[in-house]
Design a protein around this nucleic acid. Structure first.
Length: 558
RNA sequence: ACGCGAUUAGUUCAGAUGGAAGAACACAGGACUUUGACUCCUGAUGUCGGUAGUUCAAAUCUAUCAUCGCGUGCCA
């Protein structure tokens, strides 16, 4: 029984107080995406927060689609959002749509009119905006603000019945035209929009605005803590105003704001993400370079790594920019325990072992995962011709380079010691082949004479290895904060021209049956995931992340 | 300009009722190693945004200033 008493974040603190004072017996949170795009890692933070609260306080969490604007919403997005939440490993207690409440919302709007707290305004959007003026001075009341309840009622019903054109009038709440908070200057509650809705079809031609719909929806569902991001902070007084109009019990949901996630070297706004997809800067929402949940999934990230990440970055009200390196830390940590090791050569260099018999092949035992003995072992074949990594040979090597060099000896992982004797080059001076000799006594990687060989490199047998496409991904942007632009530039100017490199790699034979979404560690190279489009006759691997590499640092310092 | 909010190590966050500044990642050094990975040791870094005040005692309370963010859609 591990009782690790971590300190509570400010939201957990609030909830614990509410529970201990008896304000609530059980909490209910909600995750309320608008189905107008794919979920990204910022949403993952919110999901982990809301569903995490449910788990730690034994409450409930609803998934509610905030589908009050039919001009932007599609069922495709609804499905992807559900899939992403499930993939992260969370289960919602109820699936709701704001559109489920259109009838109730309408009735409450009628009630507000009858109370003299809402009116139909026939002015243009421009006019309404002008009258709101600015926060430093009082606003100007609409000429329609004080028309009779009967007239408002009649007009609103006619709006609902489709008698008026889009944009010709709106229903406004009568709040306070002099408030320093612009959201309180008679906000729009309903607009006319003759659009087909993905769920209600053509039943409605008036649709509620976020500010009106959101709090009331929370109320209907009995949400206790309505958690949203900081930019809604200034909406809170209005959220409460609308609730006051319908609630007599005093048991109202409470809106709490936290700082959204910003990740370095990427963008997070739906608009920009959509633009990247629409203009083919990436190959779809699930492109492995995208910060979407589906992108991370395809890239090979595990749900655990993302959840651990979300837990670690915490929840606060401070603006933040999280280093993408932290996410990489969590995926390495997770896969180090889970991923089987295999050998693969990303940039092949042929090596001929001149003293090894021509037609001989032998099987060497290789461990699948040193971190997990139960993963067992496998056999890898070895013969006279093998491939090694081009990087693992240097003709003129610095002192600290302990891989293969002329006259030097190196260990082939699970295999023999080999020594390089001859370098074969083409007419342009490029190295095409190495001739080496092996020490037959060193099978398995140890020599009976006990001599030390510092370097161990990976390799594959040229007889049995298989070719595969390997996609080497790098960050999508070259700038830490691509949204921080200079004059005449946009975030697109910071796209990394080298964010993916495609290699034909040589893989050990055991990978022939690798299935889509299976993850491996290519020893000394990184973690890789079989792409969802991979086939047995055309294998495709995505690089999830490289291994930590202290060699490039050492080399860089020389 | 006005309103609201934020400010603790390089970064993200902890620091109830005021009582000797903490964690993780990153970084540096070392041990181990058939992955220059992993693991394990060790280490450095903070005028707790500034100033003034209350107090025996302030990161914590008060005032004030500064800086940054958000808000003036019939988007969410």
């Amino acid at each position: 029984m591990e009782e690790k008493k971590e300190s509570l974040n400010f939201i957990e603190q609030i909830i614990e107080d509410d529970l201990s004072t008896g304000k609530h017996k059980q909490i209910i949170t909600r995750f309320p995406p608008e189905p107008n795009g794919y979920l990204h890692i910022g949403h993952a933070k919110s999901i982990c927060l809301n569903f995490g609260l449910k788990e730690t306080f034994k409450g409930k969490t609803n998934l509610r689609f905030d589908d009050t604007n039919p001009s932007k919403e599609e069922t495709e997005y609804v499905e992807s959002i559900i899939e992403d939440i499930k993939w992260l490993g969370f289960e919602y207690d109820n699936l709701f749509y704001a559109s489920d409440y259109f009838e109730q919302l309408f009735e409450w709007a009628v009630m507000l009119i009858k109370d003299g707290k809402a009116y139909v305004d026939e002015q243009t959007p421009e006019h309404i905006s002008e009258q709101r003026t600015n926060p430093t001075i009082n606003g100007i009341e609409s000429p329609f603000r004080n028309r009779s309840i009967e007239e408002n009622l009649k007009l609103f019903l006619e709006m609902k019945d489709g008698k008026y054109a889009d944009g010709s009038m709106v229903l406004r709440a009568k709040v306070d035209m002099n408030s320093p908070n612009m959201h309180m200057r008679d906000p729009v509650m309903y607009r006319i929009m003759k659009k087909h809705h993905h769920r209600t079809g053509d039943k409605w031609c008036i649709y509620p605005m976020y500010d009106y719909a959101h709090g009331q929806s929370d109320y209907i569902e009995g949400i206790t803590h309505s958690i949203c991001t900081l930019e809604f902070e200034v909406h809170r007084p209005l959220y409460e105003w609308f609730l006051e109009q319908i609630d007599t019990t005093g048991k109202r949901p409470r809106q709490i704001e936290f700082a959204r996630l910003n990740l370095s070297y990427t963008v997070m706004s739906k608009r920009k993400l959509l633009e990247l997809v629409k203009n083919n800067y990436v190959n779809g929402w699930d492109d492995p370079r995208m910060p979407t949940i589906s992108g991370f999934r395809r890239r090979g990230y595990t749900p655990d790594s993302i959840r651990n990440f979300a837990d670690r970055i915490g929840v606060a009200r401070r603006e933040n920019m999280i280093d993408v390196g932290l996410l990489e830390f969590f995926i390495r940590e997770d896969l180090n325990k889970k991923a089987n090791r295999v050998m693969a050569i990303l940039n092949p260099l042929k090596v001929i072992i001149t003293n090894y018999p021509e037609n001989k092949t032998e099987q060497l035992e290789a461990q699948n995962n040193p971190e997990d003995i139960s993963a067992g072992s496998r056999e890898v074949s070895f013969s006279r011709e093998i491939y090694i990594e081009q990087d693992d040979f240097m003709e003129e090597a610095p002192n600290k380079f302990f891989r293969l060099k002329p006259g030097g000896e190196v260990r082939l992982r699970y295999g023999y010691f080999i020594k390089c004797n001859e370098i074969i080059k083409d007419n342009d001076g490029n190295i095409t082949e190495l001739h080496c000799t092996y020490d037959p006594e060193s099978k398995g990687g140890q020599s009976p004479d006990g001599r030390k060989v510092k370097g161990t490199i990976h390799w594959v047998d040229s007889q049995t290895c298989i070719d595969a496409e390997v996609r080497l991904y790098d960050r999508l942007f070259v700038k830490e904060n691509p949204e921080d632009t200079n004059e005449n530039e946009t975030y697109l100017d910071y796209l990394n021209p080298d964010s993916v490199r495609i290699n034909t790699a040589k893989l050990e034979q055991s990978l022939l049956y690798a299935k889509p979404m299976e993850r491996f560690q290519f020893e000394r190279k990184g973690y890789f995931c079989v792409d969802k489009d991979s086939k047995q006759d055309k294998l495709i691997f995505n690089r999830i992340v490289t291994l930590k590499d202290s060699w490039t640092k050492i080399a860089g310092n020389e």
